[in-house]
């Protein structure tokens, strides 16, 4: 599950900072704690970008190693988690570029089309629509749906809504402006909603509902 970190007050030190200090002082076990804390998130983010399990596993390992090696560059004024996510995003994009040789991968390609900024399907959903599917079916639907989004939208949604980064953090992590994140987030949410409506909308019965047992 996603960890939504509460925003600590300015003078309040985030517990990660103390752990980072210990690692810097040579205590590797403190890094173990940090890895355990964030490995799931990093794996998910890498999966969202690379859409490939092996790549995500590699990226996650490389990102943690890189963070460890570059720990001296970590500025205490930004959150360690956000800093880590930025490393994982960069590693993931590099991995993608390697796979799609020749084809540039860029999340800051300006998506000029207005497509997807208006909802199309206004059918209401059934109450608790997830319950109409088993775990595996539901996971498949959610995966297929989010994978169908344009890359730039998918990433903004994953970081902002799934991983709980703030709009500003998402912008910083992806190297986008805040308005760009906002416009992508809205379209990502609306497109996902439209696509999920196909699976989750209320079934309108073709015939009048029958009383239980009335059928012969």
């Amino acid at each position: 599950m996603s960890t939504i970190q509460s925003v600590a007050g300015q003078d309040e030190q985030h517990p990660d900072v103390a752990l980072v200090e210990r690692v810097r002082a040579g205590d590797v076990s403190a890094y173990d704690t940090l890895v355990r804390k964030y490995e799931r998130q990093l794996f998910r983010i890498s999966q969202h970008i690379t859409q490939n399990r092996e790549d995500a596993e590699d990226v996650m390992q490389d990102a943690f190693l890189k963070a460890y090696e570059k720990l001296d560059q970590f500025q205490g004024n930004s959150k360690f988690y956000t800093w880590l996510v930025r490393i994982a995003v960069n590693e993931s994009l590099m991995r993608l570029r390697k796979r799609r040789t020749g084809k540039m991968v860029s999340i800051d390609d300006d998506i000029v089309t207005e497509e997807g900024s208006m909802p199309r399907d206004f059918a209401d959903w059934a109450p608790n629509p997830e319950q109409n599917y088993n775990q595996a079916e539901l996971a498949e639907i959610l995966k297929k749906t989010i994978q169908g989004l344009p890359e730039g939208f998918r990433l903004v949604f994953a970081l902002r809504d799934v991983e709980g980064l703030s709009t500003e953090e998402t912008a910083e992590t992806l190297g986008l402006s805040v308005p760009a994140v906002k416009s992508r987030l809205l379209r990502a949410r609306l497109q996902l909603r439209d696509r999920l409506t196909r699976y989750f909308k209320k079934k309108t019965p073709a015939v009048a509902p029958q009383v239980n047992g009335a059928e012969a």
């Binding site: 599950m1 996603s2 490995e39 799931r40 794996f43 998910r44 999966q47 969202h48 995500a56 909802p119 206004f122 059918a123 209401d124 959903w125 629509p129 997830e130 539901l138 996971a139 959610l142 995966k143 989010i146 949604f157 809504d161 799934v162 949410r189 609306l190 996902l192 909603r193 999920l196 409506t197 989750f200």
Partner: peptide, 22 residues
């Protein structure tokens, strides 16, 4: 009303269901 409600549910569903399990 439907758009607001179902967009909220969309976000919630993605938050609550681990699609890339480790």
């Amino acid at each position: 009303e439907v758009v607001l409600d179902t967009t909220r549910k969309t976000i919630e569903i993605y938050r609550c269901h681990e699609i890339y399990e480790l």
